[in-house]
C-alpha cells in the first residue's frame, strides 16, 4: 500500500481505489459463475425496492428461465461520458453527501449534549450534597472498612484492604480484563517471526538524564507496590509506574536491549504465572472463608512491611500483571520497520 501521491485528499484515494477495482474486474478471467453472480448483483441494484432476500433470488431465477431480461440493468452506466468526467462527478456527489452528514453530526451532537446535561442536572440536584457527613453512601459498609479494616485485613491503607480483601473478586475480574486486553492487542498487532526491532538510541542528554532517573523511578515503583498496604498506592499504581520505567528504559537504551531480556514470550509467562498465583491465593481464601474452615492467614502487626496476610504477595502479583501489560502494549504499539 503506497500512498505517496502528491494529492492525498481522501476523495482522490477513494477515486483511485474505485478505479483499481474496476481494472481488476476487467482483467479477471471470464468465469461464468462469477458473471452470473455479478448479473444477480446488478439485478439487486435495479430491484432494490420490489422484492426481498431469498425470495428476490427465486423471482430472479424465474425471470431468467422465462427469458425476461431486464433492459434497465445498465441504466447507471453511460458509455458516452468519458471515464474521467464521470469519476469527477461521482466524487463531487460523495463530497456533498459527506458535507451534509457532517452538518447533521454537529447539530445532533449539540442537541444530544444539551439533553443529557439537562436531564442529569435535574438528577444531580436531588442527589445528596457534596461532602455531606450524613450521605447515605457513608453507611455501615464504609464504617466497617474504616473501623475494623485495620484488624481484619492488617492493611493500614483502607483502599488496598478493600480491593484486595473485601472485594477481591472484582479485582480478580479486573486483572482478567487487563490480561484479556493484552492478549487481544497481541492477537491484533503482532505478526509472527517479527525480527527484533533495531532502533537507534535516544539523544545524549536524554540518555544521561534517564540513566540517573531510571533507578529512581524503578525504586519508587517498587516502593509503591511493596508498601501498597501501608501507604497510598498499591499494585495498580505501582505497576503502572514500573511499566513506565520499563518503557523509558527501552526508549533510552535503544537497539532492543530491553526486548532481548524481556521477550514477548517471557512477558506473557510472567503475566500468566502472576495471574495464576493470584487466582490460587484468592481461591484459597474464598474457599476457606465460605466454608468456615478456619485456616486464616496470620495478619501480622498492621503497619509493618510483612503484615496483612496475603496482601503483600497479592499486590506484587497485581503490580507484575500491570507492569507487564503496559510494557506489552508499548512493544506492540511501537512503530516497526516493515511499514
Amino acid at each position: 500500500m503506497k500512498t505517496t501521491q502528491n494529492n492525498n485528499s481522501l476523495f482522490r484515494r477513494i477515486l483511485q481505489w474505485a478505479s483499481e477495482s474496476e481494472k481488476e474486474s476487467a482483467d479477471a478471467p471470464e468465469d461464468p459463475e462469477r458473471q452470473e453472480f455479478q448479473e444477480y448483483l446488478e439485478y439487486i441494484d435495479a430491484h432494490d425496492y420490489i422484492e426481498f432476500g431469498a425470495y428476490r433470488y427465486m423471482r430472479y431465477q424465474q425471470r431468467k428461465e422465462l427469458g425476461l431480461d431486464e433492459p434497465t440493468f445498465h441504466h447507471h452506466i453511460e458509455p458516452s461520458i468519458p471515464q474521467k468526467k464521470q469519476n469527477v462527478k461521482k466524487s463531487h456527489h460523495k463530497q456533498g453527501l459527506l458535507r451534509k452528514q457532517l452538518g447533521w453530526y454537529r447539530i445532533a451532537s449539540v442537541f444530544i449534549t444539551c439533553v443529557i446535561i439537562l436531564i442529569l442536572c435535574l438528577v444531580v440536584m436531588e442527589l445528596p450534597k457534596f461532602g455531606d457527613l450524613n450521605a447515605p453512601a457513608l453507611n455501615e459498609v464504609a464504617q466497617r472498612y474504616l473501623q475494623q479494616g485495620r484488624e481484619e485485613t492488617g492493611a493500614v491503607n483502607a483502599i488496598t484492604g478493600m480491593i484486595l480483601e473485601y472485594r477481591a473478586f472484582d479485582t480478580f475480574g479486573e486483572s482478567v480484563v487487563l490480561f484479556a486486553a493484552a492478549i487481544s492487542t497481541l492477537l491484533l498487532l503482532r505478526t509472527p517471526n517479527q525480527p527484533l526491532k533495531q532502533r537507534k538510541a535516544g539523544d545524549e542528554i536524554l540518555t544521561m538524564v534517564s540513566k540517573y532517573l531510571l533507578p529512581m523511578i524503578i525504586l519508587f515503583g517498587c516502593y509503591v507496590v511493596l508498601y501498597g498496604h501501608i501507604s497510598p498506592g498499591g499494585g495498580f499504581s505501582g505497576g503502572a509506574i514500573l511499566g513506565a520505567a520499563l518503557i523509558l528504559a527501552s526508549l533510552v537504551l535503544g537497539a532492543g536491549e530491553v526486548e532481548r531480556v524481556l521477550t514477548s514470550k517471557r512477558v506473557t509467562y510472567i503475566t500468566v504465572f502472576s495471574l495464576l498465583t493470584y487466582a490460587a491465593m484468592k481461591s484459597y481464601s474464598f474457599y476457606t472463608g465460605a466454608n468456615h474452615v478456619g485456616w486464616a492467614i496470620p495478619k501480622g502487626e498492621a503497619g509493618h512491611l510483612f503484615s496483612g496476610g496475603f496482601l503483600l504477595p497479592l499486590n506484587l502479583c497485581v503490580g507484575l500483571i500491570v507492569a507487564c501489560t503496559m510494557y506489552t502494549f508499548y512493544t506492540l504499539f511501537i512503530p516497526t520497520e516493515e511499514e
Binding site: 455501615e140 459498609v141 466497617r144 472498612y145 481484619e152 480483601e165 473485601y166 472485594r167 477481591a168 473478586f169 472484582d170 481464601s285 474464598f286 476457606t288 472463608g289 465460605a290 486464616a296
Partner: peptide, 13 residues
C-alpha cells in the same frame, strides 16, 4: 448465597 472471603455479604462480594 455464597460468601466470597472471610467477610459476610454487604462488606464482601
Amino acid at each position: 448465597t455464597y460468601q466470597l472471603g472471610h467477610v459476610p455479604a454487604p462488606w464482601g462480594n
